[in-house]
């Protein structure tokens, strides 16, 4: 197994999972890198490496492992192309979207959050069961309930955003 090829295949998906899990891109990068450093010691076949990486990374997050000095992301040096810089309205919408997703995810129990996010990365129920320590037969029920809770919390948060935006608009109109 070519480590670099494995890294290039699995790093983006592990980073995405961790970013969703933590809500912190810098932390996600640190943990993803630390997980790959640990994988180097294991020399696992690729099929085993993927669930192993996600389990180790989840444990690192749970244990609060992070680098003491935060690394500047490459994005900072380059910056986005001018055409992709969002306007104030788009930026506000994006922040509201991120806040709603975070609130909905954080309203879930850590185990349920992990289950939903692993499912999003295409893990099978048997792998999710092994990683979270639940019985394989109960994964479907737990996923269904967590999905409903997430969707309900997310919709409620977004509805509240719309009400707030409407009030802001009305207030601005009065001021004008």
């Amino acid at each position: 197994m070519d480590f670099e090829a494995v890294f290039r295949r699995l790093y983006p998906t592990l980073f995405r999972y961790l970013q969703r899990l933590t809500g912190d891109a810098d932390w996600a990068e640190d943990v993803a890198q630390e997980s790959f450093v640990r994988l180097l010691r294991q020399r696992l076949p690729e099929a085993e490496a993927r669930p192993w990486l996600f389990t180790v990374a989840t444990n690192l997050v749970r244990d609060g492992v992070r680098k003491t000095t935060r690394r500047q992301r490459l994005l900072a040096s380059a910056g986005p192309p001018a055409s992709s810089i969002p306007g104030p309205e788009e930026e506000r919408e994006r922040r509201a979207e991120i806040a709603a997703v975070r609130a909905a995810l954080e309203g879930l129990a850590p185990r349920d959050r992990q289950m939903l996010l692993m499912r999003e990365e295409g893990f099978k129920y048997a792998e999710i069961a092994r990683a979270t320590g639940v019985a394989p037969g109960s994964v479907g029920t737990l996923v269904a309930r967590a999905l409903r809770r997430f969707a309900e919390a997310y919709r409620s948060q977004r509805a509240s955003d719309v009400r707030t935006a409407a009030q802001d608009t009305a207030f601005s109109a009065k001021q004008g």
Binding site: Q19, R102, L116
Partner: peptide, 14 residues
């Protein structure tokens, strides 16, 4: 809802 909201909130990785 989960899949689309997560995708919208993701910070892309270059």
């Amino acid at each position: 809802v989960l899949a689309t909201s997560l995708a919208r909130a993701d910070q892309p990785l270059a």
